[in-house]
């Protein structure tokens, strides 16, 4: 039973001047509890692919399946119960407390005006605990650092409690310890709660160690997918790294520059 599946997805951008092909015939099948990292250079289409898989952008052809159901047949309002997103850019709104912001994650479950029930409040508090931000629940968003804000946004995503989680570059702006903490939390969710997690990242070294599968997108619409070891040794990986001054240690899954 696949949690999320892509079948022959093609994405391209058309304008009067040019036709940019981002991705051709992309296929993917993820099981419950799997964690996948999407890597590729800037402009290779990672964000576009994540948006298509999230139902936020139309692909030119192909289908996306959530829990074996065709995405286009799933009502928009019930989608957030199955899949949650963490974007790389957010409008940072002051005037909200941390608790209020995380409570936005409960919107798919609250009534017409968004009133929170005791159950909702419990989920919110639990989510804040998981990311280690419980002490900040009353703090105004404007007083948080970038890293703290991102953790709160992750808590919001957790409060949404969707089985599939798609994150676009979640570790950018985070220092190394926070980045590792973040990914470890995601790994725990995948393992303990069987959440299916898809993230894109520039931090190759970090993700190679922590995920089950890697998908690499290259600039001309091609892609490779496989386990970290498989992808690391693939020729497309070398052209992605653009220089043979980096070599991959199979044992430790580390990329080392040749000095």
């Amino acid at each position: 039973m696949t949690a999320i599946q892509a079948e022959n997805i093609s994405i391209s951008y058309h304008s009067r001047k040019e036709n940019r092909v981002i991705l051709t015939d992309f296929n993917l099948a993820m099981q419950k509890g799997e964690m996948l990292a999407l890597i590729g250079s800037n402009g290779s289409g990672k964000s576009s692919l994540l948006r298509v898989l999230s139902g936020l952008q139309e692909s030119n052809s192909g289908k996306v399946f959530w829990n074996q159901r065709d995405l286009s047949a799933i009502a928009r309002s019930s989608r957030p119960r199955y899949l949650s997103n963490l974007f790389s850019n957010y409008a940072r709104v002051d005037g909200f407390s941390v608790f209020d912001l995380v409570s936005l994650g409960r919107q798919p479950y609250t009534g017409i005006f968004g009133k929170l029930k005791a159950e909702d409040e419990g989920v919110i508090i639990e989510s804040l605990e998981k990311v280690g931000m419980s002490a900040f629940w009353k703090s105004p968003i404007g007083t948080l650092s970038d890293g703290e804000f991102r953790k709160v946004m992750l808590a919001k995503m957790l409060a949404q409690n969707a089985p599939v989680m798609i994150l676009d570059e979640p570790t950018t702006h985070l220092d190394l310890p926070s980045g590792i903490e973040f990914l470890k939390l995601l790994k725990k969710l995948a393992r303990d709660e069987q959440k299916t997690i898809l993230l894109s990242s520039h931090n190759i070294s970090l993700v190679f160690k922590m995920v089950d599968k890697i998908v690499l997108l290259n600039d001309s619409g091609r892609y490779i997918s496989g386990t970290p070891k498989e992808v690391a040794n693939h020729e497309l990986m070398c052209s992605f790294l653009k220089t043979s001054d980096i070599y991959f240690e199979n044992e430790n899954l580390i990329f080392n520059p040749k000095l």
């Binding site: 999230s54 019930s78 997103n85 957010y90 936005l104 919107q107």
Partner: peptide, 11 residues
């Protein structure tokens, strides 16, 4: 308030 993309992801 968090942006249109976010609102879209909330269905």
């Amino acid at each position: 308030l968090l942006g249109e993309m976010h609102a879209g992801s909330m269905g």
